[in-house]
Every structure is written in C-alpha cells, then in structure tokens.
Simulated assay, not measured.
Amino acid sequence: MIVRPGEPGGVERVHHDPLELAAELPLSADEAAYVEAARAPNTLRGYRSDWAEFTAWCDRRDRPALPAAGDTISLYLTELARHGAKVGTMSRRLSSIKFAHQLRDLPDPTTGARVVAVWEGIRRTHGAPPDQAAPLMFPELDDVLANCAQTRVWKTRPPEPDLAGLRDRALLLVGFCGALRRSELAALTVEQITEHRRGLVLALPRSKTNQRGEEPELVVLPYANRRSRCPVTALRAWLDAGEIASGPVLRKVSRGNRVLDRALHPESINDLVHAATMRAELVGGPYSAHSLRAGFVTYGHLRGASDRAIAHQTRHRSLATLGAYVRIETAWEDNAATQLGL
C-alpha cells in the first residue's frame, strides 16, 4: 500500500519489496514473471534487503524514498560511510535504489551531480581491497577431508556410512577441482552431469558470468591419481549412498542419517566448508566456500598451470582477475628482498 502526501499519515510510504512495484504496472502474468527472471535470485534477494533498509531509513527521517531526491541519496551514503559500511555494500545499495526507480519508470536518482560527487569522495576515502577468503588447497585440504565423518554409530541399529560426511567430501572435492561458486554447487543437478572417459563433465546452465544462459558452461572433473583426492570417486560415492538419481546433487541430511529432497542453500554450503575447516583445526583463515575456488586458482598457479588454462576451468572472462587470488604467493617469487642475506 502507498499513502500519498496529504492523506492520513502525511509522509509517503512505499513498498519494502522492489518487485512489488512491478505489480502496479499494467503487466500480464507472463510479463511479470519475466521481470522477476531478469535478475538472478541472489541479486533479487539482495535488492529486497537493501530496499527495505533504505526505505526504513527514509521513514525515520520523514523523507520520500520513491522518488528519492539527490540529497536523500547523498545523505544516506554519507551516514553509511560514517558508520563504517564497506564501499561494496554501498555500491550494492545504490544498485537497489536504481532498480526500484527503474521499475516505476522514474529517473535514476543515483546519477545526479551531488550524488556522484559524494560517491566519488567516499570511494577515494574509504575504498579498500575486498576481503578475500583464504585459499583452501592441498595439503591442508587433505586434513579437512580426513576429518569428514565416515561412520555413524547407533545404539539401536548397526553402524552406517555417515551420509553427511560423504556429502561434505563430495562438496569439498567437487568445489575445489571444479572451481565452483557456492551458488553453482547449490544449483548443481544430476541431469547436468555427463560421463566421460577421463572423468565427468558438468554443464552449468547459468552462472554469475552467464546469467542469461545462452550456452551452458562446461566444467570438467578429472579422475585423480589418489583416490582420497578424486572428485569423481567422492561424487559417485555420495550419489550412490544417498540413492540420488535425479534432481539436486548436494542435499540436506537428517539427524537420522537420511538424505532429504531439499537442496542445500548457498549459505549452508558456506557454513559446511567453514565447519569442515574448524574440525581440521586449520589456521590462517577465514575459510569459506569461496576458499575452494580461490584454492584451485592458487594451487593451479603453483603447479605451473597457465592463467589461460586456469581461466578455462574457472570461467573468468578477464585473466587480470586471477591475479588477485595468487598475489600473496607470487610476491615471494624472484624477489630481491629474500636475497639480501640479512
């Protein structure tokens, strides 16, 4: 509901969900569905959260959020920066505000001279490299895998293979060897897996860099020389034990050691990787699901793989992006500081 100025309540109140704004437009059901499909689900969740935060801020200051004035945006950014918000967070908030206005055919309030000047100053003053997850790779990954549970022991029934442990091993090895994002791991289905004489091929219909899905992205999972490090072996063991023949690959496991039909949420995958590293008592974190992808890039570089070969698997469009993953490791290579003899 929207309360117009002059009506009881005085201040214009807006929806706290930017997608609800589309419902006020003369759209057919099919058109509305396509509007929602125009953005990835994770992006839409972020827009919803950011828009709710912005409109709540506007309500507290008796300022209209839709349409938002330039001084409202600049004041909002200034307050966020003063309270320590990261530049990346503020950038996402601006995108959410822009999206909400676009849905109502309103001018973009984030492009005015006042907002641009304040935003440039904030980025120059508070800009910093984004926090990076520590790479998770061998031999540390061996310790993490070894600490995944293998057997469930019961008082009233015989011991069973620990399904959560099998799932976590598959998650870790597929995530590392496939250099997959947590959203890709969560969305992976059995139907996307194809057998190959050298291992398995994953056909990902969509990804962060392929949101329209014109052509699936191919990711290979080769057989490993060591069984304990083989993503193909770990994945097949999980699918066989869980009796998973179709649908989501990575699923929840009940406390009773039963595989459920529900796929893991991307955030759950993050939590599982973090928990696995905690069990192994690894130092040097923080570790997250992204540590698997970062670990693949770093480990591949240390093993002599070219940037182009690494990007073939990670599907990075820019080779320069890979540098952020390996900068710390390569800083020691051929560096005179290590040859001073001090």
Rank of each mutant, 00 (worst) to 15 (best):
P135R: 10
A149N: 06
A186L: 00
A186E: 00
L173N: 00
P161D: 14
R124T: 11
E184K: 06
V190W: 06
M137C: 10
Q132Y: 09
L166T: 05
P158I: 03
C177F: 11
L188N: 03
D143W: 09
L163F: 05
R152N: 12
R124D: 09
T189C: 09
V153I: 15
A133M: 10
D131A: 14
G127N: 12
A186T: 02
A186N: 01
P130Y: 01
V190L: 05
C148E: 02
C148N: 00
L145D: 01
G165P: 04
D168H: 08
G165Y: 01
L145T: 05
F138S: 01
R124Q: 11
P135H: 06
L185N: 08
E140T: 06
R181A: 07
M137H: 11
L141S: 07
G127K: 10
T151Y: 03
A134I: 02
A170M: 13
T189I: 02
L136H: 00
R124H: 10
L166A: 12
R181Y: 11
A133N: 09
G175A: 08
A133T: 11
F176Y: 15
M137T: 02
N147W: 08
A170R: 11
L171P: 03
E140D: 15
A164K: 13
G175N: 04
H126F: 13
A128W: 08
T125E: 14
F176M: 07
N147S: 09
T189A: 08
F138L: 12
A149G: 07
D168E: 09
L136G: 02
R124N: 07
H126D: 13
G127D: 13
A170N: 10
E160S: 08
L171G: 03
R123T: 05
D142H: 05
T156A: 13
R152C: 14
G127W: 13
D143P: 01
E184L: 06
H126T: 08
P158G: 13
K155M: 09
L180A: 08
G175M: 07
P161K: 14
C148H: 01
L180C: 11
E184S: 15
L136K: 00
D168G: 06
A186W: 00
C148I: 02
V153T: 15
G165H: 04
P129M: 12
V153S: 13
A164M: 11
L166D: 01
Q132C: 04
L180I: 05
D131W: 07
A134T: 13
D162Y: 06
C177M: 03
C177G: 00
L171K: 05
G175C: 09
G178R: 04
L163A: 00
C177I: 01
L185Q: 12
A170C: 11
P135F: 05
F138D: 00
R157G: 09
D131K: 15
D162S: 14
H126V: 02
A179D: 02
L136T: 00
L141T: 04
P139M: 13
P139L: 12
C177T: 11
P130Q: 14
T151Q: 14
N147I: 07
L171Q: 03
W154T: 04
L141H: 04
A128N: 12
D143G: 11
T151I: 15
A149Y: 00
V153N: 10
N147Y: 07
A149V: 07
R152M: 14
N147D: 12
P129G: 03
L163N: 00
V144S: 01
Q150P: 00
L172K: 02
